[in-house]
């Protein structure tokens, strides 16, 4: 007789737990964002985070974009040839890269590389009392540790996506002209004539949001890690998994926002 009530209680407890976690993340994000715009500003830490997120992620993002553009050209050529629509390939490649694949793949790559590192660094600081030490040294940990990383995520990822867009389109161009017999100048002309400002801008806005989400998850899970090495390991995993899932979920909602009328 009590089984349905137990089930209901478990469901309610789960819902409360989810609300608590979401609320805690939202408050953490708002606190981090408010510290971005309030002095003092840590320019050196922002620069360091930009190097970490942007510069050091450049090779992996560049290679991912390049090969994605190449394989996209190869696969779409096969598909489009069935409808005798090979000439649409440059348009398909540029739209796919700028609207979706550039920001999403760059985001996932950076989430794996940087989100994990952020969670590990801040988590280690938590379990070795370094975050408490910051507080005793008249420094707000949110301002010192979180705000520069959030800002760097928002700024660095769109810059990476610009590079990813260029290299992704170049990858498609290379395969189309070297392997599939496309005329180079026709390919470039088709690409440029069918690409709109909104395609690129929407991708860059997505990238800014993804950069924020990656930094937020890395900082949040690191900041709240507990229990020594095991806790830091768990925080690292959670940071990467949650950032990756959020990137894909927000990609859908942002696409709805930008492109569905």
């Amino acid at each position: 007789m009590t089984a349905p009530l137990d089930w209901l209680a478990a469901l309610g407890a789960g819902a409360i737990r989810v609300c608590r976690i979401v609320g805690s993340i939202v408050l953490f994000a708002l606190s981090g964002l408010s510290h971005i715009v309030r002095p003092p500003f840590y320019g050196r830490l922002f620069g360091r985070a930009m190097m970490e997120i942007g510069y050091y992620s450049l090779p992996v993002v560049a290679l991912t974009a390049l090969f994605t553009g190449m394989v996209l050209a190869l696969q779409s050529s096969t598909g489009l040839s069935r409808f005798s629509a090979e000439t649409a390939m440059p348009t398909l490649v540029v739209l796919s890269i700028t609207r979706e694949l550039g920001p999403v793949l760059a985001g996932l790559m950076v989430a794996g590389r940087v989100g994990a590192a952020m969670a590990a660094e801040i988590g280690t600081m938590r379990v070795t009392d370094q975050i408490d030490a910051l507080t005793t040294l008249s420094t707000a940990p949110m301002k010192y540790l979180v705000a520069p990383r959030l800002l760097a995520g928002i700024v660095a990822l769109p810059l990476l996506v610009v590079v990813a867009d260029i290299l992704g389109v170049f990858g498609g161009f290379f395969v189309a002209t070297a392997k599939l017999g496309f005329n180079p100048s026709t390919y470039i002309a088709t690409t440029l004539s069918n690409m709109q400002t909104q395609d690129v801008v929407s991708g860059l806005v997505k990238a800014g949001v993804f950069g924020f989400l990656i930094a937020l998850m890395g900082c949040y899970h690191g900041y709240n890690s507990r229990g020594g090495a095991q806790g830091v390991g768990a925080a690292t995993t959670l940071a990467v998994v949650s950032a990756s899932v959020l990137i894909l979920a927000f990609d859908y909602f942002l696409s709805e926002l930008f492109f569905v009328r």
């Binding site: 070795t128 370094q130 030490a133």
Partner: peptide, 9 residues
């Protein structure tokens, strides 16, 4: 602090 808690970075 007990373990020094020096900033590694």
């Amino acid at each position: 602090f007990q373990n020094g808690a020096l900033f590694d970075s």
